[in-house]
Design a protein around this nucleic acid. Structure first.
Lengths: 194, 194, 194, 194
DNA sequence: CATGAATGAGCTTTCATTCAT
DNA sequence: CATGAATGAAAGCTCATTCAT
């Protein structure tokens, strides 16, 4: 099984590298093949088409992100610290894996028409992680965890997007910005911070 | 005189429509020309190249957005209501003008290398509007308005992005989600909501 | 007459400059128009088409070359010196006016289909100047002046061509090469140099 | 195995024919493809780009010319006859292979920017053949063989250029002209022909 | 398992030229 | 005298994909 996939994983690897170096729109079957050292045709042995290849990459990324989030959750016992930890983990994943982040969250649906939408369920898993963390940290029941988690996700996603698109003022150091995002996230979700 | 710009604006219009329907990467000079009913060459009478056309579209969008924000500011006198108003105006602009929003905020810099970066100053103008609104609404000086405005922008931007990418759970009505975003934004920036 | 031609001569001037700077294949009506500051259409008022414009330029060049050759002839009385002078004049014209030289002698006929061949008669005038110079310098009648002039022209033309195409070894200084060409030309046409 | 190169050589062949019929500037990938009977894309399987195709053609021509010159050298033992032979061989190559000659010696550097200059060394090889022939034929040391070879090359090149450009008077038969060129070349390089 | 050969559609851009005004 | 608007043709090149071997 893993034997078969030697070339397969090399293809994924080079695709990831290309994605990182030149951006999604520059990733072509031809370039991947050249980087790997095989012919474009060979790629079609392992992937039905370009989208399938990208999907595989997305899945890889989802796995990696989920791992990072779970690790962050397990690292802290204090609910509030756990919350801050998971936020930071998400942010850092985005900053440190811009290639993954791009195809996972920034690619537009029209480009990926054939993407099996049910696979997004895995993305849901991450959202539920956020919701769970919120549930633990907030004792009051006067909020909808999934809804708040979605808003939180929006904030984190927006922050990463702006950073990756180099839209955040250069006068603001990235580290400072990330800290502020987490601080604001806390303020947003735990209002009675008296 | 107004004749001159007739085709020009029709080009921009069709470009916007195409952008909306098929996404940026599907927008080509040929397709625009076909949609407008002229030859690709004719487009080059009004725009130096494809990027220049996109830039014109961006500028249009920036103008429109700025108008919407300014209108929202002028509509309310109460600082808090003004804050909610400007947030909602931004969100609604994104939802109602997805084509503009995409090229204005979602396009990756790599695709727009030739974009004159100084034109982004106009985008800054909007950020300052947010900062001003914040300054008025918060009497305490214990915060950096531009920094907080950027975080706020992240939240709004992230919300729109997820909505446009159809990443928000379909179980959550858009109107409800938008309200919640504004509510959370308020909570985030006016912590002493006792 | 010369009043009418104010724009006309500006067009020719810019065409010449463009030709010199970027080579024949980069000369387009559009670029000329932009350089002059008028529309491409305006050029068609003075020139039927692109070829006609080039023809006018060729004619200018022919005139200039002829002037240079006549001047060289008049400068010397000694037939041999006159011969060397006219050779050098031709060589220097080519080196110093590469743009003219290109369209006059290096442009291929297939590119200039509509060129009225009878205008090449003016080129013949120059050839006869060479023949005359030869006739004076050689007292014997055992040679065909026009034939020898053509061979001489071949040598001079070949030298300029190789120089302009940067095909002459960079180790050979241009001045040295030109001197040698003239020396060899003398040896070729005045064999009994005892 | 020989199958592989079948289309490749057909491409080169048609490119050469096109070049001959319509001149360099009329040679396009599309036209070649149409002449060959394949799609423009297929050409890119065998050649990286248009320049690479032309380079291959140049290389073919260089090989062919070198073969012709070497054959001429080997045909004669008498140094003077050998000299005349190599001159004639060069002239005839040019007349009989105008397409090759054009891309090898008449193409302007500006059009072939990406040409690997080191490949011109092969052209140098031919120049050295001329120099060697001169060294053998002239016992005196009072001349620079490479310099004289370059001047000789200029004469031969100029002759071919004018012939190919149809600039030589139609009253002069080509055969006569070629004979005269060789005769003048002899006179030019072996002055003491008493 | 992998390749070489080939395709058709598409891309942005430039060209010389024309025509009504 | 000069322009603005528009065109049709063509350029070099890249793309994802298929198919026989």
């Amino acid at each position: 099984m893993s034997q078969n996939g030697e070339l397969r994983s090399r293809i994924l690897e080079q695709a990831r590298i290309l994605l990182l170096k030149e951006g999604y729109s520059a990733v072509s079957m031809r370039k991947i093949a050249k980087a790997v050292g095989c012919t474009p045709t060979s790629i079609y042995i392992y992937f039905d088409n370009k989208d399938a290849l990208i999907h595989a990459l997305i899945e890889e990324g989802m796995e990696k992100l989920h791992g990072a989030l779970v690790a962050a959750v397990q690292e802290h016992v204090d609910p509030r610290q756990r919350f801050a930890g998971i936020c930071l983990a998400f942010l850092q994943f985005g900053i440190q894996n811009p290639a993954y982040y791009e195809i996972m969250f920034l690619l537009h649906p029209e480009k990926m028409k054939r993407y099996p939408t049910d696979k997004y369920r895995r993305a849901r898993r991450n959202l539920e992680l956020f919701a769970d963390t919120l549930r633990e940290a907030r004792t009051d029941c006067s909020f909808d965890p999934m809804l708040s988690a979605t808003v939180l996700w929006s904030l984190l996603h927006g922050s990463i997007s702006l950073l990756l698109a180099q839209r955040v003022d250069v006068g603001i150091p990235t580290a400072v910005f990330l800290d502020q995002v987490v601080a604001h996230a806390s303020a947003m979700l735990f209002p009675t911070s008296s």
